[in-house]
């Protein structure tokens, strides 16, 4: 085997999780585009209107709002999970830390500032504002993507909603009215409820159930009461 193919295999082996999920994401978006296009054209046909091409559909607010409403809820889920697990625990869950570690923990435990090792990220050793930002960077990024994708949902949502209103010979709505509308909150909450249920299920079921070899589970033989132990 050449050094090149060895390094490719090594890269794939060490990045399989990210690569597989990015591939699944791309396949799912393409599938959503085809299915959504067919569904959208069915609606246009029912109204005796001209159908659109796949490209036109993918550039439309109808496609964009369906993508954005799912993105915002996923990033909200991770944003809340990252922040709330600092302060909230679930005894017996591998998703939780031990109850005696509730809070942001000491600098020594977090290996920051003077306690940072030689291989620590530079901002972890820096202190001051840089450390403050870096110490919450995962949550900040998740929260920012959530806010931006929720905003994008509202903008594409009002365009898609108004397009349907006009098709049905009804008056369109302004953005401020739309963000208080049933359509906006129905789209939003139907996604939120499933994300919250998924987190609650994972936090509680992982107390009693196991998945051998998965870091999301405790070791198979670990006690139900063992908290913060990953397999």
């Amino acid at each position: 085997m050449s050094p090149m193919s060895r390094s490719v295999r090594k890269f794939l082996r060490e990045n399989g999780l990210g690569l597989v999920f990015l591939t699944l994401f791309a396949l799912a978006v393409v599938g959503q585009a085809f299915a959504g296009h067919a569904d959208f054209n069915n609606q246009l046909a029912a109204d005796d209107l001209q159908q659109v091409t796949l490209g036109e559909y993918m550039a439309s607010s109808d496609f964009a709002v369906d993508v954005m409403e799912n993105w915002q809820s996923e990033y909200l889920q991770f944003f809340l999970y990252v922040f709330l697990t600092v302060w909230l625990v679930q005894r017996g869950s591998p998703e939780s830390k031990n109850p005696d570690k509730i809070g942001v923990e000491s600098d020594e435990e977090q290996r920051v500032g003077p306690h940072a090792g030689s291989d620590a990220p530079r901002w972890a050793a820096a202190g001051g504002l840089r450390l403050k930002l870096y110490a919450s960077s995962l949550g900040y990024v998740m929260g920012t993507v959530f806010v931006l994708s929720w905003l994008a949902q509202s903008i594409t949502g009002v365009a898609a909603y108004n397009q349907e209103q006009l098709r049905q010979l009804q008056a369109p709505m302004s953005w401020p009215k739309y963000i208080l509308s049933a359509d906006f909150w129905s789209r939003t909450l139907q996604n939120w409820q499933s994300e919250f249920l998924a987190i609650a299920s994972m936090a509680v079921l992982s107390i009693y159930l196991r998945q051998r070899g998965s870091p999301e589970s405790k070791p198979v033989g670990a006690a139900h009461t063992a908290t913060g132990v990953e397999g």
Partner: peptide
């Protein structure tokens, strides 16, 4: 005039 996508009033 209101235009949204391919629809208008």
């Amino acid at each position: 005039v209101d235009v949204s996508g391919r629809q208008a009033r």
